[in-house]
Every structure is written in structure tokens, then in C-alpha cells.
């Protein structure tokens, strides 16, 4: 019988703490054949299991341009995520997927791209960012707009710094409402736009259509064409 709910087994190869209660795993499938054959598209998600507790949905936070492993970043909020947070390097967990929609990144070749994300919603967008950065020559100007409630809540802090330092990305430093003293420099992107960035990100997770109106409206005001906004 073809059991679509049966997960693949994967070993945790690396653990990184990103923010309070937010953690990233680098996962390698136990089956070597699967390591090579596994494919996904940027923006897709999977179900990650902590055996004995159940499974939770997270996006695949790594880019399909990086082969041999996948990454996920999750916030500890309940039963399953609490169980996952207790696992260590070398432990086995489950993954099934990929599922869901993806971003049509190849359609954007030659175009300028603005990425907007907030807080724990960066993981999905990160997959797109690295997909584009790994094939940088195919795309136009790249701007990354990202914010969180506090500096501590920013995820991928090292990568944010790296992106900020790259000359081929328009810098817009992470913005937090309190203008935390820890953040040197001031983002070039106006606060209201980043605020919309958070709304955008909430929409992405919940697929509740009315929230995206805020981001969309401000992008339209800035002259973006509705058909060129992807969520």
C-alpha cells in the first residue's frame, strides 16, 4: 500500500539557536539514495516529526540550490515543537513532503526583487533569498526588508549581517519597533513599510486574505504592479 503519511527518517546534523525559543536544524536523510534524489521547490513546506509526539508543519528554510540536506527553523510553541526542541545532534526525526505552493523564482530572471518578511516568517523567504543569491547573475537589484519585534527575535543573525555586507544587495538593515540600542545603523526602509512587512508575513502563514491587503496596498502605492507581488 502506498502510505502517503509515512515520513522519511532524517538525522539532525547541526543545531543552531536563532532567537529565544527559535531553533534551526540541518537534516540529512538516513537513506543515502534519498539524499541525492530528494527535490523540492523554494517556498514548499514539510511535516517534521518528533516520534512519540506527532508532527508539525514548517517550511523548508534552505534553498534547493544546496543539495544533500534540508534546513528548518521553528519556534517552540507546543507539544511537537517542544519535543523537537529537546532533540540533539545525531538524533533521528521524521520528515514528509515537500508539499504546497512554491515561488516561481525562474520567472523573475532579469528583474529587480524586493524581499519582505518579519520575525519567524523569514525562514520561507530565506529559501527564496538563497535560491536567488546562489544564482545571483540572473537577477537584477535585490533588496531585503526584514524586521522583528525586538533584536533578539531576529532570526539568522549571522546571515543578516552577511547580507548587509554584500555589495550586491541593497542594504536595509533589520528594523525593530523599539530601535533596540543593539542595532547599529538605521534601516533605509521606512518604519511603516516594515510594519506592513509583518502583516505580510502573518498572511503567509495563515492564508487569511484580508491581512495581505496592508502590504499590498503599500506596495501598490510605491508603484509595484499587483501581478508582481508574490506571497
Amino acid at each position: 500500500m502506498d502510505n502517503i503519511y509515512l515520513p522519511y527518517l532524517a538525522k539532525i546534523e547541526e543545531i543552531r539557536d536563532e532567537a529565544p525559543d527559535v531553533r534551526s536544524f540541518k537534516l540529512v536523510f538516513e537513506d543515502p539514495a534519498l539524499r541525492d534524489s530528494f527535490e523540492f521547490k523554494t517556498g514548499q513546506f514539510g511535516l517534521y516529526s518528533a516520534f512519540g509526539l506527532g508532527e508539525s508543519t514548517f517550511c523548508i528554510a534552505s534553498s534547493p540550490t544546496r543539495k544533500g540536506y534540508i534546513q528548518c527553523t521553528f519556534r517552540r510553541t507546543g507539544r511537537v515543537t517542544g519535543g523537537l526542541a529537546q532533540l540533539s545532534v545525531g538524533d533521528t526525526m521524521g520528515f514528509r513532503g515537500p508539499y504546497g505552493n512554491w515561488f516561481p523564482v525562474d520567472d523573475w530572471k532579469g528583474k529587480d526583487i524586493v524581499f519582505i518578511a518579519g520575525g519567524i516568517c523569514l525562514p520561507t523567504v530565506r529559501s527564496v533569498i538563497w535560491n536567488v543569491l546562489d544564482r545571483r547573475q540572473h537577477f537584477g537589484n535585490i533588496t531585503i526588508v526584514y524586521g522583528a519585534r525586538t533584536v533578539a527575535d531576529l532570526v539568522y543573525k549571522d546571515e543578516l549581517k552577511g547580507w548587509d555586507e554584500r555589495s550586491d544587495i541593497t542594504p536595509s538593515r533589520p528594523w525593530t519597533p523599539a530601535r533596540d540600542p543593539g542595532m547599529e545603523g538605521q534601516g533605509r526602509v521606512r518604519a511603516d513599510r516594515i510594519g506592513r512587512g509583518r502583516a505580510f508575513c502573518e498572511e503567509h502563514g495563515g492564508r487569511d486574505l484580508h491581512i495581505s491587503k496592508f502590504v499590498l496596498n503599500s506596495l501598490l502605492k510605491l508603484g509595484f504592479d499587483e501581478g508582481s507581488v508574490y506571497t
Binding site: 521553528f74 519556534r75 510553541t77 515543537t81 520575525g119 519567524i120 516568517c121 502573518e202 498572511e203 502563514g205 495563515g206 492564508r207 487569511d208 491581512i211
Partner: peptide
Amino acid sequence: FTLHASGHNPR
């Protein structure tokens, strides 16, 4: 049913 990890609930 739709509660997000952030604590936000679209419904």
C-alpha cells in the same frame, strides 16, 4: 486550528 507559532491567530 489556525493558531500560528507567533501566537497570532488569523481566525
